[in-house]
């Protein structure tokens, strides 16, 4: 079927299969920042925004994006880079494979929560798994970024 959606502020018309998931559609159209790692909707690597809310693009049918506004990290490059600089200053990107999805959720959290506590930060980011860093460096980076350190 054909869907019309806005991807990173650009209106596009794409042909998608009925059972195609948004992450695959995005990758097929060159948004290679979108990673997949679990097949079971629980690792958070494929996080993008739908109408500003963070979602798992691997688990949302592409057709559901019809009429919606999808944002990938390519669409928020300035904010993403600002946070990525802090993250890499901690060394907390390590293999980097989970970083784009993680960064999208961090930016979503910044938009959604005011002055979150450490517990609220950890809770908001729980759906983003990382096997390299042990999470502590990511937390330091987030706190620095939000100015709650």
């Amino acid at each position: 079927m054909q869907i019309e959606l806005t991807v990173n502020d650009k209106l596009v018309t794409w042909d998608v299969e009925n059972d195609e998931f948004l992450a695959d559609t995005l990758r097929a159209h060159g948004f290679l920042s979108v990673k997949k790692a679990c097949d079971t909707s629980c690792c958070g690597l494929c996080t993008v925004w739908m109408d500003g809310k963070p979602i798992l693009s691997c688990s949302i049918l592409a057709m559901r994006a019809h009429g919606k506004k999808i944002t990938t990290i390519e669409g928020v490059s300035q904010a993403a880079e600002e946070f990525a600089r802090i993250l890499t200053a901690e060394g907390a990107e390590q293999c980097g494979f989970c970083s784009p999805g993680f960064i999208m959720n961090v930016l979503a959290m910044k938009n959604e929560l005011d002055n979150p506590t450490e517990d609220e930060i950890i809770h908001y980011l729980t759906g983003n798994l990382c096997r390299c860093t042990g999470y502590m460096g990511q937390l330091r980076a987030v706190k620095t970024y939000l100015g709650v350190a």
Partner: peptide, 9 residues
């Protein structure tokens, strides 16, 4: 339940 992104879906 899993994470914010999951619960949004």
């Amino acid at each position: 339940i899993i994470g914010v992104q999951f619960r949004n879906g």
